[in-house]
Design a protein around this nucleic acid. Structure first.
Lengths: 145, 145
DNA sequence: GTGAGTGCAAACGCTTTGCATTCAT
DNA sequence: ATGAATGCAAAGCGTTTGCACTCAC
């Protein structure tokens, strides 16, 4: 994707900051939040501010470059896969993975039941990832209260 | 439900504050957040503090008296219907309604795809409720940016 | 009487905003 | 040269916490 062109098409200026954010998080499959993006930028782009990351991600979301996840977590996470899909988060290590669900079917169901015109379908799961399941034996769960 | 008994069974003391919260939000179908609960308590129970509402709702969630919703919104909302179900929020008036979805099927799907042991399934929708759809004609959408 | 619960205010984490400065156009 | 974008610090929001006081048991 030519991010510069997409920005221009949408009336946004092409700045080093925006290119830097795109460069760092494009093809990133870890579903980072703003803080993570900021930290990842630090070594190569120490001039970046966290506020700019937020502002940039807001624009990226608006022009469809990323989607914002609802992960049953406090901080937003961003996904460069903008195809609608669901996510599952490991409550132990916070790793997030994609899940494909039939969103259209769910939307139809909701529309039929409630009469709402459905605009967005958000599906998320939490669980324990395969890796953490392996480590679980004899190991106390860090997340226990 | 005998909330006093449930509290005692779980080792929590029965206080006027906890009874007041339960009285006000039990059978409440508006999926209120902490602030809304606080405000609803004010006239009848002006002694209540917001912090206590939070603390009480946390306990209620822990002992299964309420469930906490993820509504693609900033503030938590609470639901006294603890049967697992999904929600749809109107982006115009913020009204929230219940939706029944086959969560088990979704959980199986996620488990198969990712290998995670699925602990929770969260489904939420946004849309425009029937009422707001009616009002929509010739009326600018308040939520438009 | 004792420990749990309360209320206040302060702190918190994530996010947004105001504003002077800088930069893309 | 002009308006948009940046960076900083401060404010904002919903939420949690520390602590002295109060109350259910």
């Amino acid at each position: 994707m030519d991010i510069a062109a997409v920005l221009r098409e949408n009336g946004y200026k092409v700045t080093p900051q925006r290119l830097a954010v795109y460069e760092v998080v494009n093809n990133n499959t870890t579903h980072p939040n703003a803080e993570a993006i900021y930290k990842e930028l630090q070594p190569k782009y120490p001039f970046m501010s966290l506020a700019t990351v937020y502002k940039t991600m807001e624009i990226f979301a608006k022009i469809g470059v990323v989607q914002v996840l609802q992960c049953e977590e406090d901080a937003h996470r961003y996904d460069f896969n903008t195809k609608p899909h669901a996510h599952i988060r490991c409550t132990r290590c916070n790793r997030v993975m994609d899940v494909d669900v039939e969103r259209d079917k769910l939307a139809d169901l909701a529309q039929t039941q409630t009469g709402y015109r459905v605009d967005s379908v958000n599906v998320s799961f939490t669980g324990i990832c395969a890796e953490c399941q392996n480590e679980e034996t004899g190991c106390q769960n860090e997340k226990e209260n």
